[in-house]
Simulated assay, not measured.
Amino acid sequence: MKLSAELKAFEGRIGHRFAQPELLLRAVTHSSMSSPTREDNQRLEFLGDRVLGLVMSEALLARDTAATEGQLAPRFNALVRKETCADVAKAIDVGAVLKLGRSEMMSGGRRKQALLGDAMEAVIAAVYLDAGFDAARDMVLRLWGKRIDDVKADARDAKTALQEWAQARGLKPPKYVEVSRSGPDHAPVFTIAVELDNGESERAIAGSKRQAEQAAAKALLARLET
């Protein structure tokens, strides 16, 4: 199988030449483009998530030999969560090589955080199946780069941190409410409110519900801890 010029350039960006190029093609094929003769990347995403987890577990243990499990867990979660995978995917322009159906393409699929994160995990799995764990680990460590060294000792995401703050004070878990949605389907804008049962609340606006929830939680937590 011969890869397109775009996928060959992508091989250069990830630093791996595929002996089985069909694996790379599958890794960048979204379910909206799947067919009886073309597999999508969902199964690879499942495998890539596990490979990424092992790579990051090894890396964190090697970098801090004195850290406890409780200290390592939030750092691990910060490095493998979908937002981080999507950031790495953007850095190597995964969106440019995604194979999307027309409706997904028209709705801005090449920029969607979830699609980019999923595709990044699928690419990791493709490299693993093509050349083994060492090759996948080398690529992941290279692409994640300083993110591993810079991950904070307390790397909990804002929603987790806010929930722990509430639970420590005997409050119910935070409630997230979609206040409004505006903009076209391919570029929506969400306003999300986070509320605690003690009456405290904050709002945030972002291009996805997940991002808006995190931003609202971060804003409320910052206010509560001042």
Results as ranks from 00 to 15, higher is better:
Asp138His: 13
Lys112Ser: 07
Ala59Lys: 00
Leu141Cys: 06
Asp197Ala: 07
Lys172His: 15
Ala187Cys: 05
Lys2Arg: 15
Glu178Met: 13
Glu69Ile: 13
Val123Arg: 00
Gly132Asp: 04
Arg102Glu: 12
Arg111Phe: 14
Lys218Gln: 12
Gly170Gln: 07
Asp149His: 01
Val127Met: 03
Ser34Cys: 13
Glu83Arg: 12
Arg26Gln: 14
Ala216Met: 04
Lys82Met: 15
Ala219Cys: 03
Val179Ser: 09
Ala153Arg: 10
His30Phe: 02
Pro173His: 02
Glu121Arg: 14
Ser32Arg: 00
Leu224Thr: 02
Gly108Leu: 01
Ser57Asn: 11
Glu69Asn: 12
Leu47Arg: 10
Leu61Met: 13
Gly108Glu: 06
Ala204Ser: 07
Ala126Ile: 05
Arg169Thr: 09
Gly117Lys: 00
Thr37Glu: 14
Leu3Gln: 04
Val140Pro: 00
Ala153Cys: 08
Phe190Ala: 03
Ser32Cys: 02
Ser4Asn: 04
Met1Gly: 14
Ala67Ile: 07
Met106Phe: 09
Lys99Val: 12
Glu45Lys: 13
Met139His: 04
Pro188Cys: 08
Asp185His: 10
Leu115Ala: 09
Lys218Gly: 04
Glu45Ile: 05
Val28Trp: 00
Val140Cys: 10
Ala96Ser: 14
Lys82Gln: 14
Val51Trp: 00
Leu54Trp: 14
Arg111Met: 09
Glu69Thr: 10
His16Lys: 07
Leu52Cys: 10
Arg169Tyr: 11
Ala122Trp: 09
Arg43Glu: 12
Lys90His: 05
Met56Leu: 15
Arg13Cys: 08
Ala59Leu: 06
Phe190Gln: 02
Gly207Asp: 12
Glu83Ala: 13
Arg210Gln: 14
Gln214Trp: 10
Tyr128His: 11
Phe133Pro: 00
Val51Gln: 00
Gly207Thr: 11
Arg142Leu: 08
Lys146Ile: 10
Ala19Tyr: 06
Gly48Trp: 03
Phe10Gly: 02
Lys152Glu: 15
Phe76Asn: 01
Leu79Thr: 01
Asp87Gln: 15
Ala91Arg: 15
Gly12Val: 04
Leu24His: 00
Val88Asn: 05
Phe76Tyr: 15
Arg110Gln: 11
Ala122Arg: 03
Arg38Val: 15
Gln214Leu: 12
Met139Gly: 01
Thr29Leu: 00
Ala73Val: 09
His186Tyr: 12
Thr84Arg: 08
Val151Asn: 02
Arg156Lys: 15
Trp165Ala: 06
Thr226Tyr: 04
Lys172Trp: 06
Met56His: 01
Ser32His: 00
Lys175Glu: 13
Ser4Leu: 06
Ser103Tyr: 04
Ala119Ile: 08
Gly95Tyr: 06
Glu200Asp: 08
Asp197Leu: 03
Leu72His: 04
Thr191His: 08
Val55Pro: 01
Asp93Leu: 11
Pro188Glu: 06
Gln214Ala: 12
Ala219Phe: 11
Lys8Met: 13
Ala219Glu: 03
Pro36Phe: 09
Lys218Asp: 07
Asp157Met: 10
Leu100Met: 07
Glu11Ile: 07
Asp185Lys: 13
Gly145Asn: 15
Ile205Thr: 13
Pro173Gly: 01
Ala193Val: 05
Leu143Ala: 06
Ser103Gln: 06
Lys218Met: 08
Ala96Met: 08
